[in-house]
Amino acid sequence: MTPLTVLGGYLGAGKTTIINGLLASLAQATGNPRIAVLINDFGAINIDAKLIRKHQGRTVELTSGCVCCDIQDDLGSALDALRGASFEQVLVEASGVAYPAKVANYALTWPGYRPAGILVAVDALNVEDQKKDKFIGHLIDAQITEADLLLLTKLDQLDCNHRQTLRDSLPTRAVRVDHGCVDADILLAATLSRPDSPVVKDHSDQFRTLDYQSDRILDHDRLLTFLDELPEPVVRAKGWIHDNQGAWWLQSVGKRWTLEPATAIPDGTNLVFIALAKPGTGAMLSGLKHALQGL
C-alpha cells in the first residue's frame, strides 16, 4: 500500500513553498524516492523548467521520476489514476480551508493507500491573529489539533520572546521550516521505506539523529510500549524491524506511529530517529539507544 501524507494549513502558511522546495531537493540527486504530489492549484507551483520532463494537461512529470498533479478538488479521481503507478509515496496538499483529518480519511477509504501522517504548516507570524479571526479562528484551531506534526514557517520573522510563547501554545510537536527548506526526511515516509534508499544525512542544525542497527530479534510488546513513550523531541522515526511476531516497517510522524507488516527486507532492525536539537536532546537520544538495546 502506498503511504499517503497530507500537508494541510491555511492560506499563506507556506504549503506551496514547502512543496516547491521538496520537488527541487528530490531532483538534485539520483536514487531519491519517486513520489506523487497532488496539489490544488498549478498557478502557485514553481517548477524549474530544467526539471520538467513532460507537461500534459494537469500533470507534470519531473526528471526525478516524481509527478505533480493539479487535482482541482477531485482527490478521488487522482488516487484512482495513480494506483498501480508504483510511487513510493503520495503527498496531498489539502486546500487552505480543508480539515486535514478529513482529507487523510481518503487513505483509509481508497484501496491501495495507507495513512502516513498529517503535517500542517503554520504561519508563525500570523497564527495568533488567525486564531482570533471570527471567520477562520475555529478552522485554524482544528487544523493545528488534527496535525501529527506542525511545520512552523516564518519563524525567523518573529522575535525570540514570541517564538517561545508560540511554541508553548502548540499542542503538538513542531519543526521549523525556513523559506520552504525542510528535509525530505521530515516530509516523507518514503525515505528508508526500502532497504536501498539513501538516508538524507544533511539534516539542518535543527535536528539530531540516531541511527540504530541490530541483528537481535526484538520483543513485540516491549517495542509497542517503547513507541508509545517516544519523547516529545522525536519528530520522525522510520525503518524496519524484526521482532518475535514478525517483520515490520515503522513509520512515526510526530505523535503517531504505525507498524506495517513487511516482506523482502534484510535481517535485523534498522531505524533512524530524528529529533529536534534542544538542550538535553543528546542525552535523550543516548537514552533511546540504551532503551532499544533492552527491547
Binding site: Y10, L11, G12, S95, G96, V97, Y99, F135, I136, L139
Partner: peptide
C-alpha cells in the same frame, strides 16, 4: 466549512 477561503 468554507467552500472558498475568505481571502480568496
Amino acid at each position: 466549512e468554507w467552500i472558498t477561503p475568505p481571502e480568496k
